[in-house]
Design a protein around this nucleic acid. Sequence first.
DNA 1: CATGATATATATCATCCAGATATCTGTCCA
DNA 2: TGGACAGATATCTGGATGATATATATCATG
Lengths: 200, 200
Amino acid sequence: MIYIMKIYMAPRNRTTPYAVLGMLHIRPMSGYDIRKEAETSLGYFWSESYGQLYPALRDLAAAGLIRRRAGGRTGTRERQVYEITASGREALALWRTQPPRPTPVRSELLLKLFFGNRASTGPELNWIDDVLATETAALRDFRRIRSELRLQGDHPSLPFWLITLGYGEHRSRAVIRWCRESRKALRAMVRGAGRKATRR
Amino acid sequence: MIYIMKIYMAPRNRTTPYAVLGMLHIRPMSGYDIRKEAETSLGYFWSESYGQLYPALRDLAAAGLIRRRAGGRTGTRERQVYEITASGREALALWRTQPPRPTPVRSELLLKLFFGNRASTGPELNWIDDVLATETAALRDFRRIRSELRLQGDHPSLPFWLITLGYGEHRSRAVIRWCRESRKALRAMVRGAGRKATRR
DNA sequence: CATGATATATATCATCCAGATATCTGTCCA
DNA sequence: TGGACAGATATCTGGATGATATATATCATG
């Protein structure tokens, strides 16, 4: 029997280099800057870890997609600033046309809630209060970012920035609604359990 | 100078074994069943890959937290069904009291949108239409699940299942709203570019 | 009834990725 | 003067994904 071996060279995710390329497309940055950016403005939909970042910068520079240059000492120590090259822009543009791959979800909070039991309610309410606080703060940030973007005039990426920002806003509002709803449900459940306990 | 070495034995995430334990707490299952469950009913907030699943089952069985037994041939091939043990239940209960760790977000869709440019709009509308279709289908599923849960009477975990389900519903509705809004924005942008192009 | 597509089922391996850790310098402030 | 802290670069371990391999049984289809 004849069979065909599919060799297709494992098209792994490998998104980190493109994320880096995209960040450097906006403006030249150091590794530290990229991380900062991912923590603050992109944090609600993208995260980068050092363990991926620095190797990616090295590899991209070796491939000629970015260029390393001394960035002067803005503060304390010699900065290594990277800027995107023409071929880097090409690679980014090509990647941008490929459909995005869905990233798996893993919410430990929801998993722990899912395994919850009426008989042994514990710190669930606190967890939900924490989420509520986080998302409320996020919503404040989004409002600030939105007004900053409005003032900034029209960058060619502005419509897309507003779209991603909109995602964050919709998401946060939904989570806040869920928190309030779930708090009610949890409190009702605890009261129910209490009543049963006293009636006994 | 005297300094203290923090050795704290890398409290890595290691959530897979507990996810498995939790699933087996609900009912005895095979590895395949767990994966199926994660793909369908838990899919909107939790995912498991085979690469973690089978080693976790082996390790948990070796540690005595679960027990392996022959599950008869339900269909095609000998099934290896696992059930949770008393010490497994204890481990699960302990883990459940620990606060959940936040899991990093990485949405390739939003990243690609963020790097978008007014000058070169491409397949973004299609991506958003895909999301819209997915979330609409998810919402239908949630409705079905909700009515199934209502019929099922009162399992001690029911209130928690409704809470996680509520999360999925709120989230899907928010994403759907975002899709509609973003489609409008994208179409307006393309029209704007078109007008500029014809005016030239 | 051969053929192939598909579902059930278990398992491994190559990468990819997160987070902990290490190290160093300058600034602020008590 | 000394410590806390922020800016900065980097590495390593171990956890997680997804592709792949291997089998068997079922079911539609010509």
